[in-house]
Simulated scan of single mutants.
Amino acid sequence: MKFTIDKHEKYVTIQPHVEVLDGDSAPKIKAEFVLRNSGGQSNIVLDLSHVKDADSSGLRIGLLAHRMCKTAGGVFILACANQRIKNLISVCKLDGVFTIAPNTAEAEDMIFSKEIERDLRGAAEEG
Rank of each mutant, 00 (worst) to 15 (best):
A101Y: 03
D47C: 10
A31R: 14
V20T: 11
D53T: 08
A81M: 10
E32S: 09
N103L: 09
E126Q: 11
V20R: 12
L35K: 14
D119K: 15
N82L: 08
T104W: 00
E32M: 10
H17E: 15
V45F: 08
I85Y: 03
G122N: 13
G122P: 01
N87Y: 02
V91P: 02
T99K: 11
F33A: 02
G127N: 13
I100T: 13
K114A: 14
E117R: 12
C92P: 01
R36S: 07
S42D: 05
S25C: 03
H8G: 05
F112Y: 14
S42A: 14
Q41E: 15
S57Y: 11
K2W: 04
E108A: 14
S57H: 11
V34L: 10
A31N: 15
A72V: 01
D22L: 02
K114F: 14
V20W: 01
R84Y: 07
A72F: 00
G96C: 10
G74K: 01
H50F: 12
L63K: 05
L21V: 05
K86G: 00
T13L: 13
L46D: 11
S49P: 02
E108Q: 12
F98E: 06
M110T: 11
V12S: 13
M68Q: 07
K10N: 15
V18E: 12
I29A: 01
L63A: 07
S38L: 06
H17N: 13
M68F: 03
V97Y: 07
K10M: 10
A54V: 13
P102N: 14
Y11M: 14
L78P: 00
K7D: 13
M68H: 01
D53I: 03
M1H: 11
V18Y: 02
T4V: 13
D119E: 15
L78K: 02
L120R: 10
D95G: 01
